[in-house]
Simulated assay, not measured.
Amino acid sequence: MLTYNRESMVGRAIESILNQTYRDFEYIIVDNGSDDRSGEIADAYAAKDPRIKVLHIEKSNIGTGRNIGLDAATGEYITFIDDDDTAEPDMLEFLYGLAKEQDADISLSGSMKEVNGEFLPNCMFDEKLVMTPEEAVITLLRRKKYNAAMPSKLMRREIFDKIRFRTEGKYDDITVVYKYFAEAKKVVAYGLPKYCFWRHSGNNSAFTTNDLLLTPEQLDEYFEAFRERTEYLSEKLPDIADYAQYSEWSYMISMCNKIEKNHLEQCRKQLTFVKRELTKHYEEFYNSPYIEEFEKEFMRKYVKTV
Rank of each mutant, 00 (worst) to 15 (best):
Pro216Gln: 12
Lys59Ser: 02
Leu120Trp: 00
Ile291Pro: 03
Ile29Ser: 01
Lys261Glu: 15
Ser111Met: 03
Met91Tyr: 10
Met150Phe: 14
Phe298Met: 13
Ile163Phe: 04
Val188Phe: 11
Val176Cys: 07
Met9Asn: 06
Lys153Glu: 01
Glu221Gln: 13
Glu295Asn: 03
Gly63Val: 08
Leu92Ala: 04
Ile68Phe: 11
Gly202Phe: 10
Ser111Ala: 13
Ile163Ser: 00
Phe125Gln: 03
His56Asn: 06
Ile29Arg: 09
Pro133Ala: 05
Lys162Phe: 05
Leu264Phe: 13
Asp211Arg: 15
Gly97Pro: 07
Lys304Ala: 04
His56Phe: 00
Leu95Glu: 03
Ile68Ala: 06
Lys170Val: 11
Glu235Asn: 13
Pro133Tyr: 04
Ser60Thr: 10
Leu2Pro: 00
Glu283Gly: 05
Lys162Leu: 14
Ala225Arg: 09
Leu18Phe: 07
Pro289Gln: 06
Glu101Asp: 08
Glu93Met: 07
Leu98Trp: 00
Phe223Leu: 14
Met252Glu: 14
Lys153Gln: 01
Ile28Thr: 08
Leu140Ala: 05
Thr21Arg: 09
Ala47Ser: 12
Glu183Asp: 11
Glu76Ala: 12
Asp103Asn: 13
Arg268Ala: 14
Gln266Ile: 09
Phe25Cys: 09
Tyr190Met: 15
Val306Thr: 11
Ser201Pro: 08
Thr208Ser: 15
Leu92Glu: 01
Glu7Gln: 15
Val177Asp: 06
Cys267His: 06
Leu120Arg: 13
Met150Cys: 00
Gln20Met: 07
Lys280Ile: 05
Tyr302Glu: 04
Val30Trp: 07
Lys304Gln: 13
Glu265Ala: 12
Arg6Tyr: 08
Ser109Arg: 01
Asn32Val: 08
Thr3Val: 13
Phe285Asp: 06
Tyr246Pro: 03
Thr175His: 07
